[in-house]
């Protein structure tokens, strides 16, 4: 089969019929790469099997344990914390830490925030927007460290990629993943000219817990 035939764009009438949209060249390439990698993973297992077939195996009879499987069925299906840590479940690989990859995410976030604040006009009161922003999600926002107890953190700008309990993970324009503690630092979030400050010491919860928590109206400001 010709390789050129594979890369031909889908004809217009077929697009309407199948209701699929042809993807851009770079996206299609990325998809093919990932798909091929996923589908060729099985070869390594075959190698292991062929290695095992040359090994001496002691044959013996053992009664199948029935009660063990029953106990397993009662167990929760999820992973526990140790397994999660071993799998490195949330750690971004260094080759994926590229700034351009996260620009669409930032675009999506801006749409979300303008939708959340119902248009985000200059007439709307800042208190109303602050109330909304408290419960909003900040993944994908461009944030800047304004003040901090540690002076080397001040001035770092980047897209917020992950939010943990005590830490923000930020990707900077130089393609570096920075880990910034929330405690004792102040962050600024900029949306269409609105700048709102986040006091990190008050923000020390997980991203999911913040949605359910009630904030005090007037907190003490130290720093």
């Amino acid at each position: 089969m010709d390789e050129a035939l594979v890369q031909v764009a889908i004809p217009r009438d077929l697009v309407d019929f199948l209701r699929v949209e042809p993807q851009t060249n770079s996206k299609a390439q990325a998809f093919t790469k990932a798909f091929l990698r996923n589908s060729t993973q099985q070869q390594s297992q075959l190698k292991v099997q062929s290695m095992l077939s040359h090994k001496a195996v002691i044959l013996g009879y053992s009664r199948p344990k029935k009660d063990k499987s029953r106990r397993n069925s009662k167990k929760a299906k999820g992973l526990n914390a140790r397994q999660k840590r071993a799998m490195k479940i949330f750690q971004i690989k260094p080759e994926h830490q590229r700034y351009e990859l996260f620009l669409p995410l930032h675009e999506l976030w801006r749409q979300y925030i303008t939708d959340l604040c119902s248009g985000l006009k200059s007439t709307s009161s800042p208190q109303f927007i602050q109330q909304k922003l408290l419960k909003a999600d900040f993944h994908g926002a461009i944030i800047t460290v304004v003040r901090s107890k540690c002076p080397s953190y001040v001035g770092i700008t980047g897209i917020l990629v992950q939010e943990f309990k005590h830490v923000f993970k930020i990707i900077t324009k130089e393609d570096k993943l920075k880990v910034i503690p929330k405690r004792n630092s102040v962050f600024a979030v900029e949306i269409n000219g609105f700048v709102s400050h986040i006091y990190g010491s008050k923000f020390e919860q997980r991203a999911s817990e913040r949605s359910a928590k009630k904030f005090k109206v007037r907190g003490t400001i130290d720093l």
Binding site: K33, F90, Q91, I92, H96, F102, L105, L108, H139
Partner: peptide
């Protein structure tokens, strides 16, 4: 917020199909 997170996951995967972690 839930909707945004779901879309963000789709967005990340469409940008880089191997970035499963994020």
């Amino acid at each position: 917020r839930l909707n945004y997170l779901y879309q963000a996951a789709h967005c990340v995967l469409s940008q880089n199909p191997e970035n499963v972690e994020l």
